[in-house]
Design a protein around this nucleic acid. Structure first.
Lengths: 351, 351
DNA sequence: TTGTAAGCGTTATCAA
DNA sequence: TTGATAACGCTTACAA
């Protein structure tokens, strides 16, 4: 682990100046003989360019940061999976920040852009505060936000359309004949929580369904919260026949409780999740879920950022990724269930 | 996004030298008056230290890389979740590499250590080749390997004990009265594949169970591969009564096929997975799984690396994390099923 | 206590 | 085509 060779070491060994070494290394026009000597020396020494020095000079780090609320959340993971290869292909490294959805941490990340350890940032904040907006305006590097920001915010922005997403799900449930459709939501002071709650109310109104506050339960976005909320719901509204859950984790908690309560899914109660994570396909019954295009959003965000990094200026862009309803067993029953590679064989003698 | 202020800007504004600015910023002894002026100037200018310049001088980047085979794999994710906070607490940023289990990419990462963009590396290679070992020996920064390396390799190493893990599972199945226990393995040229396959054979031998090659099926480590392997197995060995799967994804594929084939789990066939990922708790029936301590291994690796970064030398250390069998419904039946927060209530009138 | 100046490893300008 | 030299923004002897 001795001190690595630098262009100085190479220059000495090859008997040329450091400028020549640099030129060769960067593929600039050089005499063949010089090039040969330099390459030979570099090879022998096992030379590797120092990225830090390079960055200092070039003012480019070839690093991009991705700040997510929670490494454990599959929706962010889906974004990460798409972001990573796009950046890699463009020669950027990925610096990962987990902010635990703490606003202060997110502000920190925005602030730290001033340290210039990355060329840009992709961030997916759960809540967008005034301070967020101020910091965004003052950001020292290009930022792409995954999630919705207020109209007029001058920042590249990739948004999901949870409004339409909820709508798709409610329509689906309605079509299946469900009329007592509950909503198990996350905190309404979060961007997604607020949007999904509003969309639910609107959809119910449009379908002419009676509004009933007891049908709306609120907890956090995790499985035990979903379970608690649904346990509570079943007591208050025993005749509920469908659950619109604000994400898949909540929906899993719902399935746990329904199963324990002896309610059949989907016969007695149909369940829809959101985000269409891996868990949706893994659960049993598999979970009908609204894909908000996490993967697509991640990809779009990465591409938007790369454009900024390469092209430079221009007006902020807003990309909206359309939602998609993925129907599985938790609403459609077993006919729709199971991964594609399984050919069902049941006692009744299905195919 | 104008050019940020540097210590020069501050020095000018405060009417002191850049050395004084640096001293104040680093908390070195300074006259009160100077400190005040510098801080004032820095505040007004919104100064933030340039991390790159700092790194060049100090030869420390305060970045650590984590190279995993596949961002999508929950086992690596579990590691990541533990590594992240440990590093963050110690003031390190996390650079994420996804190598897609391609050896060349892993070698690349090892090589790129020479660029000195990180102070250290945590790597979890699926296969360990000769080249890996050579590169490890020549690595220009401290490396911690998660996974097993050959005896004598001079590198910090955190290993799982899949041998004991498989043993726990097989003993469990045997205790439950299962005698036709199959193994659905991943590729045997991978480190985990080889270890798990060997452990399976040994465990069967020790229990005095008849060895039957038809009971061993091999595919890749993913869900469709598991499904394919089990479909094949059911044809060859119809009386199989237990499946030891080399990971949870394979086990999920197994559940798909068993369900489609009308075999009850666990009554007809008991299923055990490995890695105890989120998916194990999400599936239905929930999956008994051998936890190889992914989380603990991640944490241990991060701590080992930090010690190296702070303390320096010393002999390479090997940490082995003990496995743990997490019993769920896929072997123990519904009595053991469901998350803790659910109190089961069934028609028969359980608690 | 403070300022001057060297140096970290590059890239890039300007003469030669 | 090449070499000397000046940055990039910071930390740190060494002198004052």
């Amino acid at each position: 682990m001795a001190d690595g060779p630098t262009i100085n070491t190479i220059a000495e060994r090859a008997g040329v100046s450091i400028a020549s070494v640099s030129r060769v290394l960067n593929g600039l026009p050089t005499r063949q003989e010089t090039e040969r000597k330099v390459m030979a020396a570099a090879d022998e020494l096992g030379y590797v360019r120092n990225a830090v020095a390079r960055s200092l000079k070039s003012r480019r780090t070839h690093q991009v940061a991705f700040a997510m609320a929670d490494v454990g959340n599959p929706a962010y993971l889906a974004m990460l999976r798409q972001i990573q290869p796009v950046l890699k292909a463009a020669g950027y490294r990925l610096v990962l920040h987990s902010t635990d959805a703490v606003a202060a941490d997110e502000i920190d990340v925005l602030h730290s852009l001033g340290e210039r350890y990355v060329d840009g940032l992709i961030m997916s904040p759960l809540r967008v505060t005034e301070t967020h907006l101020e910091m965004l305006a003052a950001a020292r590097a290009p930022v792409v936000i995954i999630g919705s920001v207020p109209e007029g915010t001058r920042v590249d922005n990739v948004r999901a359309d949870s409004h339409t997403g909820v709508r798709l799900a409610i329509d689906h449930l309605h079509t299946l004949g469900r009329r007592r459709i509950a909503m198990i939501n996350g905190p309404v002071d979060t961007v997604p929580g607020a949007a999904r709650g509003a969309a639910y109310r609107e959809a119910l109104g449009d379908l002419g369904l009676r509004h009933d506050e007891a049908l709306v339960r609120i907890g956090d976005f995790y499985r035990p919260d979903g379970a608690r909320a649904v346990a509570d719901l079943l007591e208050r509204v025993p005749d509920v026949d469908a659950l619109m859950c604000a994400n898949d984790l909540i929906a899993l908690g719902a399935l746990d409780v329904l199963r324990a309560a002896g309610r059949r899914v989907p016969e007695d109660v149909a369940v829809v999740g959101m985000d269409d994570t891996d868990l949706a396909a893994a659960s049993w019954p598999s979970l009908t879920s609204v894909s908000l295009g996490s993967a697509e959003r991640g990809k779009a965000a990465a591409e938007l950022l790369l454009e900024r990094l390469q092209g430079g200026g221009g007006e902020p862009r807003v990309v909206t990724v359309p939602p998609r309803l993925v129907v599985r067993a938790s609403t459609a029953g077993f006919e729709a269930a199971g991964p594609e590679y399984v050919h069902h064989h049941r006692e009744e003698g299905g195919k």
